[in-house]
């Protein structure tokens, strides 16, 4: 067994929170630069220029004031032994440290109805996969709620088929409109159960842009859906234009003979995530 100390986990999570909130990933930047080159609408060009200047000049200031809920994805090798305490406690201590020391916004309330801010952005939303090997991969993906609020799930029926999926994705983006800070990133989860579909959609958002679904059938669907979205005319900030979405990723899994769950997780242009392998 390879040992990893909880203090290493805490320090890594803290560092990743700050990095994710202040440095846009290169693949996202590339999509924004490319969109600026092909955007024909002048208002949209101006807005993309502002977005580009924002991520090129922000320095230590968070790209967006909504530094999100800290979604932390753990891929824990089954040969790893975590020592010195609880893994999840270590993650939460890391989130509190990162958000406090990094001057990130504390946007979490401890109870959904009584709504008192926890003042350190904990608890994190932790997702764990046990995988082969002796590594621990940590991905921190801060998720803003302007876009999270515009996400939807549908328990479609088998007879709805691929046309039902296409219709639901387009309706969701149309409904999001200017509210979710377009140009968007769209994560689509198809299959599984009610909850697994939503998780797939969230995982689709942290996949590298340009890495299509390995199955050509779904890779083609990704391209088609993105094209359809970019014909809606919503544009950057909803003020018209070709660039309504930067990217769309689909994740899939097996499902029941009676069902076709489909979840659409909307993200803004500030699609933030940072990863480290321990």
């Amino acid at each position: 067994m390879r040992e990893i100390q909880v203090s290493t986990v805490t320090d890594t999570v803290a560092r990743l929170c700050v990095q994710a909130c202040t440095v846009l990933p290169e693949d996202v930047k590339t999509r924004i630069y490319d969109s600026r080159k092909t955007e024909p609408w002048s208002t949209a060009q101006d807005i993309l220029d502002v977005i580009i200047e924002n991520f090129e000049t922000n320095g230590p200031i968070p790209l967006c004031q909504d530094t999100g809920m800290a979604c932390v994805f753990l891929e824990l090798g089954q040969e790893v032994h975590i020592t010195g305490g609880s893994l999840y406690d270590a993650v939460n201590v890391g989130v509190a440290k990162g958000y406090t020391d990094g001057l990130l916004r504390k946007s979490v309330v401890g109870d959904p109805l009584r709504r008192v801010n926890t003042n350190d952005n904990t608890p994190a939303m932790i997702y764990t996969d046990i995988v082969p090997g002796d590594r621990l991969t940590i991905t921190v993906a801060p998720k803003g709620f302007g876009s999270e609020n515009m996400s939807r799930i549908a328990m479609l029926k088998p007879a709805d088929g691929i046309d039902g999926i296409k219709k639901f994705v387009l309706e969701t983006v149309e409904n999001a409109g200017p509210n979710a800070c377009p140009p968007l990133t769209v994560g689509v989860g198809i299959g599984g159960t009610f909850d697994k579909a939503a998780l797939l959609a969230k995982k689709a958002l942290i996949r590298d842009m340009d890495a299509h679904h390995p199955d050509p059938f779904y890779a083609q669907l990704e391209t088609e859906l993105l094209d359809n979205i970019n014909r809606l005319g919503i544009g950057p900030q909803g003020l018209g234009g070709k660039t309504t979405a930067l990217w769309l990723s689909i994740e899939t899994m097996a499902t029941h003979i009676a069902g076709l769950p489909c979840a659409v997780n909307i993200n803004c242009h500030s699609t933030r995530h940072a990863k480290e392998v321990l």
Binding site: I47, V50, I51, E53, N54, T57, N58, G59, I61, P62, L63, C64, Q65, D66, G146, P178, C181, Q237, C268, H269, S270
Partner: peptide, 12 residues
């Protein structure tokens, strides 16, 4: 009025 969402560092 609307300001550019996601450009918080510049607007600050």
């Amino acid at each position: 009025l609307a300001a550019t969402g996601g450009a918080g560092a510049m607007l600050a």
